[in-house]
Each structure stands twice: as C-alpha cells, then as structure tokens.
Amino acid sequence: MSTVDGTGIVTEAEPAGKGATAGSGPAAVPERSSGGAGLRAVPGGLSAGAREQAPASRPPGALRAWWRLLGSEAGLTFRRPRNLAVLAVLAAIPVLIGVVMRLFAEPLAAGAADGPGNGGAIFAQVAGNGLFLTFAALSLLVQLMLPVAVAVVAGDAVAGEAGAGTLRYLLTAPAGRTRLLAVKYGNAVLFCLAAVSVIAVSALVIGLALFPAGPITLLSGTTISFAEGLLRIGLVVLYVTAGMAALAAVALALSTLTEAAIGAIAATVVAVIVTQVLSVVPQLSWLHPYLLPQWWNGFDGVLRDPVATAEMGQGLLVFAAYTAIFGSIAWARFTGKDITS
C-alpha cells in the first residue's frame, strides 16, 4: 500500500487465534477505515450507483460489443512496443534493399540475373522502375520475415494472455471463449494486413524516391500504366495478407496448446522453416501443392498478362482450407481448455 496513515489505526480484536478474551467474539468489531488514501467509501456505493444506470442504458448490441473487443485487441497489439518494433523492422528492410540497390545497382542486378527462376530478375527490374521494389521486397520478405512477424502476434494471442494470467480475467468478464478467439483471429488478420501494407508502402515510397517511376513491364513482357501498377500492388497486398492470415490460423492453433507464448511463436516459425525445406526437395514434389509457403509467392500471378486468376484462386483456396482446419482446431482446443494460469 502506498500510504499507511497513522491515524488509520483501528483498535482491533486480537486475531482469533490464541484464545480471545471475553466478549471479543469473531466478527464482533465493525471497523471503518478512517480515510487516508486507502480504500474509501464512495457515497452511495458502487453497486447501488451503477445499478441506477443499468435500466437507463440498454445493454449494447452484440455486434457493437464485438467491435469494442476487437478495437481493444487492436489497440493492445498496435500499442505494444514489441509489435511496433516488428513493424518498424519490416518497414526498414525495403529501405535497406532500396539503398543497397541504388548504391550497387549494376553488380547486384547482374548478379541477381544469374539466378533464373529464383526471382533474381525481379530485383534486376527495380533499377529500371521503382514500383518493382514493392514486388521485390514482398517476394523476399514473404519467405521468412513476414511469417515470423505474423507468428509473433498470432502465436502470442492466446498463449501470451494465458501466461500473463490476463486470460482468466477476460474469460470471467465474460468475454466468451468463441467470441474471444474469433476476435483474436480477426485482430491477427488485421496485423497481417498492417504488416504487409507497411512493407508495400515503405517499398513504394523508397522505390519512388530512389528510382525512376513509370509504366511497368509485367513478367509476360506486357506494359501497364503506373496507375494500374498501383492497383496491382493493392491486389498483391490482399493476396499476401490472405496467405499470412492462413499462417495466423496455424499460429493461433499452436497458441491454444501452450501457456508459453514463446513456445507457440517458435513452433510456428519452425513449422514454416521445415515446410520451406520440404518445398525445395524435388522428391517430395507431390507434397508441394499442399504446403502453405508454396503458395505465398503466388502473388506473381498479378504480374502476368492475363492475371493468373486460376493459380491465385487456387492459392486462396489453399489459404481458406488452412484457415478452416487450423481455425477449427484452435476453437475445439480453446473452448474445451481448462484455464489454470
């Protein structure tokens, strides 16, 4: 207690332990805290006071309550220093790539072009058109950095609250398990969108600042206007967000299995790395279409002419399947879980 008020000493019965003297029965002495900064009696009392309001203000709509909780989640996520640092790193990488390419444009472009089929060409294009930095940065970051960022937030979602003990207070509020989980997932998707957008915007700004802008040459060799290029960047952002949202579902499922957030985060990252390794083993090519990371780069379909809607549609279906399966696993686990932390 911050203050111990000298005047607050109350004559008190001897604790009922070692034989109380006559007349000092338990619960006999009513006591009053005599002021100070301690717990204070509020005139009217809270229960009574609040009860007055209850009939006057009708209970808020369920939808509104959902939005309020989502807003609270988002506020928590986007005010948390750690998450802001993650977003800052994501924003800094396109800047780094852009600056390096500006300084060493020639050798890097030539070197990159040596690796056919590995996206090297897309880097070579950056020097000619700043808009391509967005695609280049996303194709690079979507492999590991972005998944790690998503894992940090989605893996922490339930396990972090459980570890801190705040989960029990949310549930006794009562947030409702299904509602809380849905809101947590919605918030994770929101973070995915923010993370992808941060990369895109940062790359766009630095790309346009350091390199010439203009019409864009697609992978198919067709040229589209700058404005349409921006539109296609928007599509890329949405597609990559959907891919990350699927990963967020996996991370959320892992998050319901443990009370150690770091465990869920690490498990998600390890899962991503393992699948990345599997997806370069040619003997496992039959497995590749079922691996999530395999589809993250599918946004290159936006850069074809015509846009490879079939492939990207298939990618979105894969994302939806992952989201449905792992989302329902998370739900089954979380709604039946004993909260003992």
Partner: peptide, 19 residues
C-alpha cells in the same frame, strides 16, 4: 507461357510475327 517463380518465358506467334 512457361511461368516460373517470379519469372516467365513466353513464345508468341502471330502470323509472320514471332517473339
């Protein structure tokens, strides 16, 4: 068109034009 990861090879033939 042979799509690769972030790349594409195209052969376009239109009459006597071929690219």
């Amino acid at each position: 068109a042979m799509p690769g990861r972030m790349s594409e090879t195209d052969l376009i033939v239109n009459g006597d034009q071929a690219w």
